[in-house]
């Protein structure tokens, strides 16, 4: 048992008030958290820390289990309240100064021991604050993951244009994860609606690089394996240029500049035409 644990135990009250005033000057966010709550958290953490450090100085040991559990809750609630990971870490780190002050007062006569103990206590607190940051970032990652999934669901509407003709208007960047969702929902819709033709419209896709083109070709090939035709429409002049410059081969794929052109082709292939019923009826649209 080294000495810093005894010093902390003996000076618990002084450390707590020192810690609270330290936080009040440097890291408080009164807009996010009230005095009572922060006092409760500080008191509880100091109690758990003091208790755990009496039996072990290894953060990984069982003695620190409840401290770590508590820090996890702190990290979660702080992230929910809108603290940054750095602010969350500072909550633990700001305990350093009052602890070091207490050590300095207790070991005035022995500077070399003081350095050793400050090092040991500092080390322990650093590890705990790192753990808090890891937790905080972990919670943030979970949030991001959830949002990504929600976005994927929102971003792939398959619409029916006519009996047997589907359209998939794509908007935004296509990455691998999104393409898989797009591919699945289009192919499933083809089976569900028994559609012979599907039109993928990329008017809303900002750029087409080799990877995006490959994804599109894969989707179209898969549709063909199932027995449906897939057209690509909404190819802007700039994208047509990129496709040629990149040497992407779209020769096996039916492309059209506009969605309406692709739709007209789909109607024609399924033996249908659009005629005007008003005035001098113009000829059915030529392709």
């Amino acid at each position: 048992m080294s000495a810093f644990q005894q010093v902390i135990k003996a000076n618990e009250t002084a450390i707590l008030s020192g810690w609270l005033s330290e936080m009040a000057t440097s890291t408080r966010r009164t807009d996010l958290m009230g005095d009572t709550e922060i006092r409760q958290q500080a008191t509880e953490l100091l109690r758990l820390f003091t208790e755990a450090s009496q039996t072990s100085s290894d953060v990984q040991s069982a003695a620190f289990a409840s401290t770590k559990e508590f820090l996890k809750d702190v990290a979660k609630s702080r992230m929910d309240q809108g603290f940054t990971p750095a602010e969350t870490a500072l909550f633990v780190l700001s305990m350093k100064q009052p602890v070091f002050n207490a050590l300095r007062d207790a070991m005035k006569s022995n500077p070399s021991e003081l350095v050793t103990e400050i090092w040991a206590a500092g080390n322990l607190l650093d590890k705990l604050s790192m753990l808090t940051v890891t937790n905080a970032i972990g919670f943030r990652e979970l949030t991001i993951q959830r949002q990504q999934e929600e976005m994927l669901e929102l971003s792939t509407p398959v619409v029916k244009l006519w009996d047997g003709i589907l359209a998939l208007p794509l908007i935004g960047t296509l990455d691998s994860a999104r393409t898989q969702v797009v591919m699945e929902s289009l192919l499933t819709a083809i089976v569900d609606t028994n559609s012979q033709v599907a039109i993928i419209d990329i008017t809303g896709v900002p750029t087409v690089d080799t990877l995006v083109a490959q994804h599109l070709i894969k989707t179209i090939t898969a549709a063909r394996l199932m027995g449906a035709d897939c057209y690509l429409s909404g190819i802007r002049p700039a994208i047509a240029q990129t496709i040629v410059h990149l040497g992407i081969d779209l020769t096996d794929i039916q492309t059209k500049a506009k969605l309406s052109d692709a739709f007209a082709l789909a109607l024609q292939r399924s033996g249908k035409t659009v005629v005007s019923t008003k005035g001098s009826a113009p000829k059915p649209k030529e392709l």
């Binding site: 898989q180 591919m183 699945e184 192919l187 499933t188 083809i190 089976v191 894969k218 090939t221 898969a222 549709a223 063909r224 394996l225 199932m226 027995g227």
Partner: peptide, 20 residues
Amino acid sequence: VLTGMQPAVAITLVELGMAL
């Protein structure tokens, strides 16, 4: 004529490199 290939099967075949 090959009929009724399931979407998941078609996606996998394409990924496998078999476009038949």
